[in-house]
């Protein structure tokens, strides 16, 4: 299946990935080839088949509502690229 430039740009934006012009061209071609290959699935007979989202037949996995210790703030924030007091500092949302 051919995949349009608009689609790639749309998907790149949805997944918040900046692509250079060169990357965009290269990836377009590669994805088109992969999607061609994937199109093979159209031959599979899936008439009355139900989808498998979870491979093990598990259900009702629940836990009791009982508190456990949280991480101390200093540990929670230890990996933060930027922090202020006990907050994560992140770039501003500009719509």
């Amino acid at each position: 299946m051919a995949i349009s430039r608009e689609t790639i740009e749309y998907v790149a934006n949805l997944s918040r990935i900046q692509l250079s012009e060169e990357e965009l061209k290269k990836i377009s071609g590669q994805l088109a080839a992969i999607l061609d290959f994937i199109d093979k699935l159209k031959n599979a007979d899936i008439g009355n088949v139900s989808p498998t989202s979870h491979i093990l037949p598990l259900n009702n996995i629940l836990r009791e509502d009982s508190p456990k210790e949280s991480l101390p703030a200093v540990q929670a924030l230890a990996n933060a690229p930027q922090k202020k007091n006990d907050f994560y500092a992140v770039p501003k949302v500009i719509e």
Partner: peptide, 26 residues
């Protein structure tokens, strides 16, 4: 509830910032 939806962190209003978190809710 006493704890969060998917982890055992307590729910408490007015706690110091980022003091009620764990790897799951982070």
């Amino acid at each position: 509830t006493k704890t969060k939806a998917f982890c055992n962190c307590r729910i408490e209003f007015g706690s110091p910032p980022n003091s009620l978190t764990c790897p799951v809710c982070l």
